[in-house]
Design a protein around this nucleic acid. Structure first.
Lengths: 138, 138
DNA sequence: TATTTTTGCTTGCACTTTGCAAGTACAAAT
DNA sequence: ATTTGTACTTGCAAAGTGCAAGCAAAAATA
């Protein structure tokens, strides 16, 4: 299903056309923070995504250059999903989502604690995490 | 339609449950940057949202405390939609979306120019814009 | 070597949401 | 008094979602 129709040339609109749904950024989150990178990993996440939806979202994320599929080093049966640079560049956005949600929603104590670390040095956290994500891709 | 089922206590997931769709953040954008604040204004935006979808999104944004409805000063026939503090606090997120999209999608020259201003002093832009949004609410 | 399990999907189907067009009710303008 | 503007609601076909089941190749186990 090619989603060719650009609604407008607004950057917000273009972005939402790629990842503006309830699931895509959860996959990015898993790749970014939880280091989960196989199909089965994503299925196991707390939000219980349906397998057909997962397959569909992985495909559109790949088509839009946010993730890549490659052979998993451990097994031919596994597929390794990884963030591209375009995907890694979503990190500042993901940090802001976390900070916004922290202000308005209850979240687990450990999450709050690590977000306080992020707040102390947002730039530093982003640089460090981006560097780590880059290292793990090759 | 009460959407009571929380998928998880992850802040990303909680956020996406509120505004994780293709339209909600466009309404926020209109309120934030284009100073559009009536039902008709939203309908007129470039992306051509369907009227029933607009009504539905305005309702959930209001239910989730991101916008408020009030009497329009100009006319009893009009309704004034405004961002709450919770809505204004989405500003850093909206800025990051703009910056991400600027890197990967073509956008109009005037948009690029104003984003370059934002990049020069991100903090300053956010503070200034948030202050203006607060002034216009009462 | 044969069988079972793991892994990454696809398919079928009921249910929900979306998007387009049309309609409605009240306020304001003519 | 009639038309226009504004904020919606309603009907309906088409598309998308979510659950369960199925499937094929690879890996692990017997």
């Amino acid at each position: 299903m090619p989603d060719n129709k650009k609604r407008s040339d607004c950057p917000i609109s273009s972005s939402l056309e790629v990842w503006g749904d309830k699931w895509s950024l959860l996959i990015v989150r898993d790749l970014m923070f939880a280091k989960q990178c196989t199909y089965g990993d994503f299925l196991k996440s707390a939000e219980k995504i349906a397998t057909n939806i997962l397959a569909s979202r992985l495909q559109t994320l790949e088509e839009n250059g946010i993730i890549t599929k490659s052979d998993h080093p451990d097994s031919k049966a596994k597929v390794l999903y990884q963030l591209t640079q375009k995907g890694i560049d979503l990190l500042p956005l993901m940090v802001e989502i976390n900070l916004w949600a922290e202000k308005y929603y209850d979240l687990p104590a450990d999450r709050k604690a690590s977000l306080n670390e992020v707040k102390k040095d947002k730039e530093g956290f982003i640089k460090k995490t981006a560097r780590e994500l880059k290292k793990s891709s090759y």
